Computed example of a mutant assay.
Amino acid sequence: MRHVYWIGGGSGAGKSTIARRLAARHGWRLYATDDVMGDHARRTTPDEAPLLHEFMAMDMDERWVDRSPQTMLETFHWFRGEGFGLIVEDLLRMPPDTCVVVEGFRLLPRLVQPLLPGPGHAVWLLPTPEFRQAAVTGRAAPDGGFTGRTSDPERANHNIAARDHLFTERLREETARLRLPTVTVDLRMSEDELTERVSGIFGL
């Protein structure tokens, strides 16, 4: 997988934006893991992805309102690596003569590391809580999005923000332990600067 570059990280960190920029600049193929979540869910069985299928059976309040952020973190299927093998399957079906930039929160450091041909092929973007809040607010749906379909959207949004903060801190610890590169993304960093930081890590 020498032709694959990975951009993981927390929610709202700018992964999609930077991946699109790099793909356009270098003529790379873009693979957004968010775009294939529905397909991957349909391709799994309860035995292969038990947490995913438990989640699919829940109603909106059970998913986002009734559980603590810590429980949400520990039981969220994509955070546990369920379906990651399907990402790899998809990538292996792509022709290796064109580089691919893969982006998404599903790219867990411990799962990506064994696939790296060497340094300079992966980075994790770690947003500060303030940056994530600004990003989420900027792309909020007029109808309130999926949390608007819960009985308590405010609590649901609070739970998701707290869960995502815990996930970012877990990524920070795991990348440090595995000695993988990260970029902390805060409100002072422009898209241009973040693009150049990632380009530098990739050796472009």
Score class of each variant (00 low, 15 high):
7 I>L: 11
7 I>S: 03
8 G>K: 13
8 G>Y: 10
8 G>E: 11
8 G>H: 13
9 G>E: 02
9 G>M: 06
9 G>N: 04
9 G>P: 04
9 G>S: 05
10 G>V: 05
11 S>C: 15
11 S>A: 15
11 S>H: 15
12 G>N: 06
12 G>W: 09
14 G>W: 02
14 G>M: 05
16 S>L: 13
16 S>F: 05
17 T>V: 14
17 T>Q: 11
18 I>C: 08
18 I>N: 02
18 I>M: 04
18 I>E: 04
18 I>P: 05
18 I>K: 04
18 I>D: 07
19 A>E: 12
20 R>F: 07
21 R>A: 13
21 R>H: 13
21 R>W: 12
21 R>Y: 13
21 R>Q: 09
22 L>K: 05
22 L>T: 02
22 L>E: 07
23 A>L: 07
23 A>P: 06
24 A>F: 01
24 A>P: 03
24 A>C: 03
24 A>I: 00
25 R>P: 01
25 R>E: 10
25 R>I: 01
26 H>D: 07
27 G>S: 03
27 G>A: 02
27 G>V: 00
28 W>F: 00
28 W>Q: 01
28 W>R: 01
28 W>P: 00
28 W>C: 00
29 R>T: 14
29 R>I: 10
29 R>L: 13
30 L>V: 13
30 L>C: 14
30 L>M: 15
30 L>K: 15
31 Y>S: 10
31 Y>A: 12
32 A>P: 12
32 A>T: 11
32 A>H: 11
33 T>H: 03
33 T>A: 03
33 T>L: 00
34 D>W: 04
35 D>R: 11
35 D>W: 02
35 D>P: 06
35 D>G: 03
35 D>Y: 02
35 D>C: 04
35 D>E: 14
36 V>Y: 06
36 V>F: 04
37 M>A: 14
37 M>C: 08
37 M>E: 15
37 M>G: 04
38 G>A: 13
38 G>R: 11
38 G>Y: 02
39 D>A: 12
39 D>F: 10
40 H>E: 01
40 H>K: 00
41 A>S: 10
41 A>M: 12
41 A>K: 02
42 R>L: 13
42 R>T: 05
42 R>W: 09
42 R>C: 10
43 R>D: 14
43 R>H: 11
43 R>G: 09
44 T>S: 09
44 T>N: 05
44 T>W: 01
44 T>Q: 08
45 T>Y: 01
47 D>T: 11
47 D>L: 11
47 D>G: 09
47 D>K: 07
47 D>I: 06
48 E>T: 07
48 E>R: 09
48 E>H: 08
48 E>V: 09
48 E>W: 04
49 A>I: 05
49 A>P: 08
